[in-house]
């Protein structure tokens, strides 16, 4: 199966870290770059990139959000000559995909964005100029499970992991035309790329029904009570599945889970055990990279303590 899904055009990709990876998601940025180096993959940061608008700007105007996304994609294509953009943040990934969808299917979007590109003296973005992929696609297709398993130095065996993908990685389905395409492709109802990779790294992946439940990330500060309830559902479900770790692949989900785990304890008196780690941190550990280089000490939940207890550090 690996042979059929492996791609050789991902050795060098344009890297779009996004704002969160320069702030709260610093450890995600760091660990992504570290594993790239370890695996011999080349990340070229998009030159002079801008924010994708996250979950907020579309509420001011959807075309402004599309403009923000295509500006980055056009730079990758026309100024850097890249064909693939890799975004580790679900929000960035989602927005670039959404822009690609709108540019492909909506005449009105194309017109508006063309006008804006002309006014700002930027190259126009055309459908298919670049392919946007997530960090999960990147490792899955550039390295693959078999290859990854061969490179594992410290197996994650004994670690029970619930994989949490959040909302923006799979929904809505129509902006991800490459998903749900049978064997080798990602599923929008039951995503498995992170499961596949961490299993290859030796971890025990638990069956987790809330893989794509919402953490309330869009309202993590503006509607704290709702977010705390939603996060608590996820944490308690992971606990019920006997997971030690919730593996994440999005900075907003990751910090949302960490923040509201504390808030649930402070405001509702409900303490939950699982700790949060980015999947890149977990893969990095398996590849033999030191916890400090993966930014594990930057996590808010007591992930380092758990790893020590499990003898993984």
């Amino acid at each position: 199966m690996n042979d059929r899904t492996m791609r050789d055009d991902l050795q060098t990709v344009a890297y779009y870290p996004g704002c969160a990876l320069e702030g709260t998601g610093h450890a995600y940025n760091r660990s992504t770059k570290r594993i790239a180096k370890k695996l011999g993959l080349n990340l070229v940061e998009i030159d002079n990139w801008n924010c994708c608008g996250a979950m907020e700007v579309k509420n001011i105007d959807p075309e402004v959000q599309n403009y923000l996304s295509v500006r980055n994609m056009a730079i990758a294509k026309h100024k850097m000559g890249m064909d693939v953009v890799m975004a580790p943040c679900n929000g960035c990934y989602h927005n670039l995909k959404k822009a690609e969808h709108d540019v492909t299917h909506k005449e009105e979007t194309r017109k508006t964005l063309k006008k804006m590109a002309d006014k700002t003296g930027q190259p126009e973005y055309k459908p298919g100029d670049v392919e946007t992929i997530h960090a999960l696609d990147w490792i899955k297709y550039a390295i693959g499970e078999e290859n990854l398993a061969r490179r594992v130095k410290h197996s994650l065996s004994g670690l029970k992991i619930a994989n949490y993908y959040g909302c923006m990685y799979t929904r809505p389905r129509h902006i991800f035309p490459e998903k749900d395409q049978g064997e080798g492709s990602e599923s929008t109802s039951k995503p498995h790329f992170m499961d596949d990779l961490l299993r290859a790294a030796g971890a025990e992946v638990v069956e987790f029904p809330l893989k794509t439940a919402c953490c309330g990330g869009a309202h993590t500060l503006s509607d704290c009570d709702t977010s705390t309830r939603l996060v608590l559902n996820i944490l308690q479900a992971a606990e019920a599945c006997s997971a030690d770790v919730i593996a994440t692949e999005c900075p907003t989900c990751h910090s949302g889970l960490e923040m509201h785990q504390i808030r649930a304890e402070e405001t509702l008196g409900v303490k939950t055990q699982p700790v949060m780690l980015y999947f890149t941190q977990l893969l990095g550990l398996a590849l033999g990279i030191s916890p400090r280089q993966l930014g594990i000490h930057e996590n808010i939940s007591q992930s380092l303590g758990l790893l020590r207890q499990k003898g993984l550090v």
Partner: peptide
């Protein structure tokens, strides 16, 4: 909360 389940 913009989880996009509905749009999905």
């Amino acid at each position: 909360v913009s989880c996009h389940r509905c749009t999905h």
